[in-house]
Design a protein around this nucleic acid. Structure first.
Length: 366
DNA sequence: AAATCGTGGCA
DNA sequence: TTGCCAAGATT
């Protein structure tokens, strides 16, 4: 029985009828070109992040900063605060760097080639190809998790990831068309997101069901294979939430490098595998919150012990803040300046738990 | 080049 | 409950 070769045209026909409506997307067959700024912003937000999580952030960012020049002019703290909760905060730092390079060095115009795009901060092989294809309709080979999965199944490739990447890219390159490459790139990703899903793929309604080798072999649900991941260790630490008599909160701006880099957080001990050590940022009547903030990062679990204290007036606290030997900068934020939504999730969890304890202290010990 | 870097949803 | 997963980049 002769093997049927998959055709890009069949996928495009499916896409014309089934393309999802997305805030950053121009519908197929509309003869409109998308705004490269919005494509870039959406692609950076979508790195390792679900469409559902991105939507509200994309709406807020484009409302606050409609153009790359607007974003380039924004203060760092505002952008980091708006990114809070979305994760992978290096993306936000590189987003700003990239906006400022495009604004200052390229007149606010994004490069229209893969090579030019990939020179910019935060734009790697995938994002450069995606912007080149979607925004400029160039026949770039767009490789993301969806494309890897679709290619592995289409050709019944059992080599585990990431070793299979070169082979999967060869197959993807052979299929990428010269006509409508932007729609094709989005079509493969839509296929992966809605039909050729990681679990329980809907092979029966797939536009590529006939040429799919894994469907014929019955192996689609178990592809692509992946090399096993390491178990996550559990680390522990202690965070200190201090509020001044006039309602200021004592936070720190974490150093730009490393975990939660550039974000606001509560002062505290290092996070280590051993039992946590007390390490308060200043002398105060610290109270144990009695409940830990639990959180799981990419490569470890965290149990964060919490201490809270009422401290003196903000104008009296400031001189004591320079005793600590750390890369982070202390910040005393007034009630008007402190927004819990500016915090990364673990720090917001700590606030939610510690805030209530502080209210209890005030009520029971006037 | 293996490790690092978030978060929320889902089975 | 735990592990897996999502339009990856950086070092």
């Amino acid at each position: 029985m002769a093997k049927i070769a998959p055709r890009a045209e069949d996928l495009l026909d499916w896409y014309d009828q089934h393309a999802r409506t997305l805030p950053w997307r121009v519908p197929p067959l509309s003869n409109a070109r998308p705004d490269p700024y919005r494509i870039w912003l959406s692609e950076v937000m979508l790195q390792q992040t679900t469409v559902a999580a991105v939507k509200e952030y994309f709406a807020r960012f484009t409302a606050l900063w409609p153009s790359v020049d607007d974003l380039a002019a924004a203060p760092d703290d505002r952008v980091m605060g708006e990114w809070a909760g979305l994760g992978y905060y290096a993306r936000a730092r590189n987003l700003l760097k990239c906006a400022r390079v495009v604004s200052a060095d390229h007149g606010g115009i994004f490069p229209d080639t893969e090579e030019g795009l990939q020179k910019l901060p935060g734009i790697g092989p995938y994002t450069a190809a995606a912007i080149a294809a979607i925004a400029f309709d160039r026949p770039a080979v767009v490789m993301d998790g969806n494309v890897e999965r679709v290619m592995a199944r289409l050709h019944d490739i059992h080599t585990p990831l990431p070793a299979a990447k070169p082979e999967l890219k060869e197959q993807a390159a052979a299929l990428t068309p010269d006509t409508r490459p932007g729609d094709y790139a989005q079509a493969v990703m839509d296929l992966g997101a809605t039909i050729c899903t990681p679990r329980s793929p809907a092979c029966g309604i797939c536009p590529w069901r006939d040429p799919c080798a894994a469907r014929a072999a019955g192996t689609a649900p178990e592809l692509p294979r992946k090399t096993p991941k390491k178990a996550k260790p559990t680390r522990r630490g202690i965070a200190y939430l201090a509020r001044t008599a006039d309602g200021h909160w004592l936070l720190e701006k974490r150093p730009d490098k490393g975990l939660l880099g550039g974000m606001l957080g509560w002062p505290g001990s290092p996070w280590a595998d051993a039992d946590p050590q007390e390490d308060p940022p200043l002398d105060a009547d610290w109270h144990d919150v009695g409940e830990e903030a639990l959180h799981t990062f990419t490569h470890f679990h965290l149990r964060l012990g919490l201490r809270v204290a009422q401290i003196g007036h903000s104008t009296d606290v400031i001189p004591t803040l320079y005793r600590r030997d750390t890369d982070a900068e202390f910040r005393l934020l007034s009630p008007g300046d402190f927004r819990p939504s500016d915090l990364p999730t673990i720090m917001r969890k700590a606030f939610d738990l510690g805030h209530g304890k502080l209210e209890t202290l005030r009520d029971t010990r006037p």
